[in-house]
C-alpha cells in the first residue's frame, strides 16, 4: 500500500498543529476560509502562476511517451483515502452527467464512450509530491468527446465531479490537448475501482491531482470552478 496517505494525513495534522501553535499563524493556508495577509499574497501569486502557465502552455507540445517495458508494476494507488475506500461504481448503471455550456446534455453511458474513437498512450504520471509512475491508459480523447456533445470550445473551464466527492477543473486549452483522454482502460484492462473505474481523466500535461477518477459529471463553464485540493492551496493550473 502506498505510504502516501499516511504522509498526507501527517502533513495535515502537522498543518493543523502548526496553525494552532505557530507564532506565524496563517502563513500556511491552514484556514482556507479565513485567509490572512500571507495567505492572500500566496493566493495572488498562485493565480499569477496560473496565468504564467497558461501563457507557457502549447497545445501542440506533447508529453513524453514510453515503451511498454517502462510501465510501473505494480501500479501505485493514490487518493486522499485508503484503497479500501475507493468508490464502487456499477458500470451498468453509470452515467456521465453533462452540464453547463454543452449543446447536447443527454447523459453518456459507458457503451456510448466505448463506441467512440479510442486512443492509447503510455505516459508518465507525475504527482505533486514529486514521485512519478508510468502507465498505459486508453480511452476517448476529451476534445473529441467535447465536440460530440457540442460543447462551447471557447469556454474557459471544464470541471469534473467524482463518485468519491472529489472534484477538479482544467483550462480549455489543456482539455483540447491531443493526449488529454477520458480513460476507460488502464494497463490493458478496464479500470478498476482504485484506479478510477469506470472513467477517469488522464491528462499527462498536468500533475496527478488534475487527473480525477470515477468521474460522474462534466461541466463546461466560464466561472472558475476550483477543485478539492486547489481550494486548499494547491496551484490550480498544476501543469507539467
Amino acid at each position: 500500500m502506498s505510504p502516501l496517505m499516511i504522509d498526507r494525513r501527517k502533513l495535515f495534522t502537522r498543518a493543523l498543529a502548526f496553525g494552532a501553535v505557530s507564532t506565524l499563524p496563517g502563513c500556511n493556508f491552514d484556514h482556507p476560509n479565513h485567509p490572512d495577509i500571507a495567505d492572500q499574497v500566496l493566493s495572488a501569486m498562485s493565480r499569477w502562476n496560473d496565468e504564467a502557465q497558461g501563457l507557457l502552455f502549447d497545445r501542440h507540445t506533447l508529453a513524453p511517451t514510453f515503451p511498454a517495458s517502462a510501465i510501473t508494476r505494480p501500479a501505485r494507488f493514490n487518493a486522499f483515502y485508503d484503497i479500501s475506500q475507493a468508490p464502487q461504481v456499477n458500470p451498468a448503471t453509470w452515467q456521465l452527467a453533462l452540464t453547463g455550456r454543452v449543446g447536447n446534455k443527454t447523459p453518456l453511458t459507458l457503451a456510448n464512450l466505448r463506441a467512440m474513437k479510442q486512443q492509447s498512450q503510455i505516459t508518465r504520471f507525475v504527482c505533486v509530491e514529486g514521485w512519478r509512475v508510468v502507465g498505459q491508459w486508453s480511452g476517448v480523447p476529451l476534445g473529441l468527446l467535447l465536440k460530440s456533445i457540442n460543447a462551447d470550445l471557447n469556454a474557459r473551464y471544464v470541471s469534473f465531479h467524482c463518485a468519491d466527492g472529489y472534484f477538479t477543473s482544467i483550462d480549455m486549452a489543456s482539455a483540447l490537448q491531443p493526449q488529454t483522454i477520458f480513460a476507460l482502460d488502464f494497463n490493458g484492462a478496464p479500470l478498476t475501482a482504485p484506479f478510477g473505474a469506470p472513467v477517469r481523466l488522464r491528462i499527462p500535461t498536468k500533475l496527478g491531482y488534475k487527473n480525477p477518477k470515477s468521474i460522474v459529471a462534466l461541466n463546461v463553464t466560464n466561472s472558475f470552478p476550483g477543485g478539492y485540493w486547489e481550494n486548499q492551496g494547491y496551484n490550480w493550473f498544476g501543469g507539467s
Binding site: 502533513l11 502548526f18 500556511n28 493556508f29 499574497v41 498562485s46 509530491e129 486548499q232 492551496g233 496551484n235
Partner: peptide
C-alpha cells in the same frame, strides 16, 4: 509552509 500545498505556494511565489 507546514504542508506541501503551502510550501509549493511559497516556493513558486
Amino acid at each position: 509552509g507546514g504542508w506541501l500545498g503551502a510550501a509549493i505556494a511559497w516556493h513558486l511565489a
